[in-house]
């Protein structure tokens, strides 16, 4: 464990808590893409299947349980509990255009041709594009609530910090995972436009409107 990965995990945790608090306090899921949240639930489910077979640490296991649990609660909030406030007309990204290519790529490009490893690779590739429905929805609605912007900033920062973690681990531990690094770069690059708007607008008290 290193500071970059720890801060990254905390940023990820914060993003999830911000989202749940926004939904619970405002009793609304307006502006939130249910499709992205479904993709995140798939990402965690396929990545953490080793939850019961390989123990890394208490921290690792408890975070995995938290991420899986909250991802399903979030999907439940959107499609059941606060369904009347779900804006399905603006959440129209065709996720099959993400899942099929990502599934095919995971089958072809992976570290080991085993079920668990292919599912882990699928999860890594899927996570890199899972935010697209949400960014697409923000561009369609033309703006995002500031709380949603904070959620996106924390979520985008987590994988950016993981890039620093991989640089650290390469030099100090000789650890290098090309699949995770490439997907992490793609994932972080997708947030660049949003990061720019967040820093130039939201931090000055303005609202975000995409496309800028």
């Amino acid at each position: 464990m290193n500071i970059f990965r720890l801060v990254g995990d905390m940023s990820h945790l914060l993003a999830i808590i911000i989202l749940l608090m926004k939904m619970w306090k405002s009793r609304s899921v307006a502006g939130i893409s249910g499709k992205s949240q479904i993709l995140f639930a798939i990402v965690f489910t396929t990545r953490y299947l080793d939850l019961f077979t390989s123990f890394v640490s208490i921290y690792n296991t408890s975070m995995k349980v938290f991420f899986i649990g909250t991802s399903y609660v979030t999907v439940y909030f959107i499609y059941q509990h606060f369904k009347p406030t779900y804006d399905s007309n603006h959440d129209t990204f065709r996720v099959e255009f993400l899942i099929v290519p990502v599934g095919g790529l995971a089958f072809l490009v992976n570290h080991e041709f085993s079920l668990l490893e292919i599912l882990w690779t699928f999860s890594i590739y899927l996570e890199s594009v899972a935010i697209l429905p949400q960014l697409f929805m923000v561009s369609k609605t033309g703006e995002a609530e500031s709380i949603t912007s904070h959620y996106l900033f924390a979520l985008g920062s987590y994988r950016a910090l993981y890039l620093l973690n991989w640089i650290y681990r390469y030099y100090f531990e000789g650890f290098f995972d090309l699949i995770a690094v490439v997907a992490g770069c793609v994932q972080t690059i997708l947030y660049c436009d949003f990061f720019y708007l967040y820093i130039t607008k939201v931090l000055k008290g303005k609202k975000i409107s995409l496309p800028a």
Binding site: H12, V56, N60, H111, E112, E117, G174, F175
Partner: peptide
């Protein structure tokens, strides 16, 4: 073969 200490990250 997965990298050393495979998938010890979240």
């Amino acid at each position: 073969q997965p990298p050393k200490d495979a998938h010890d990250e979240l």
